[in-house]
Amino acid sequence: MSRRAKESGARIIRYRGVVKRYGTFQALSGVDLDVHAGEVVCLIGPSGSGKSTLLRCTNALETIDGGEIEFEGARIPRDGRALRDIRRRMGMVFQSFELFPHLTALHNVAEGPRTVLHARRAEAEDRARAMLAKVGLSDKASNYPAALSGGQQQRVAIARALAMEPDVMLFDEPTSALDPETIGEVLSVMKALADEGMTMVVVTHEMNFARRVGDWVAFFDAGRIVEQGPPRQIFDAPRTERTRDFLSHLGWHGQTL
């Protein structure tokens, strides 16, 4: 679906002039971006360009030093219950999975509903089983993370985020720590989620995913969005030299799949 068709979807996240500093290093220098309901927005660019930082600012794992981030028309609160309510509506998937190693796959997924939503044990575990089935891991429910492959761990992490029934999913380089042969299984789960209409913000180095699944692509460099637009524009007709340069270094020369 094109962005134009989806722009009827309400704007769900709005970044305006977002600034983030670490000491004297400016990680984000005024970022503007909109995310609409049902859209898949991919953030691409070189390492250290600020895309992961922007994602982490979205659910306030990092605080911002300037500008504003709005979720459904209201500023992201800095702390307290209001922030926790926003966080549980934004599922997050990390590069290093961050599954809880002392809990089985089932209990990893049930933990959020149990602790945050105060679901009864049976109810939380039923939901966890349904989510594991959704990511194709029903048979791994009783495994501990250490007994799962990287791809399986990341799928459990996606199930864990989905168990909170989020309105938006944030993916922070979800396949960067994976062996090449398990990347596909994670991307397939993400594609299926996008097809269901989940709103997704994805930091990624997987250009094929950004091109085929993304509705909107933002190219980051040195803490700014240098160029943003539909994937067709970014990959086939990049308007800035910097974007062309980046894509050519990835071995992408504009050919379609």
């Binding site: 794992l61 926790r84 966080r87 599922g91 997050m92 961050e98 933990e111 959020g112 602790t115 985020a161």
Partner: peptide, 12 residues
């Protein structure tokens, strides 16, 4: 990251 993953779920 463990603390962050838990807080991203909405835990205090």
């Amino acid at each position: 990251g463990q603390l962050e993953a838990a807080m991203a779920l909405g835990m205090s």
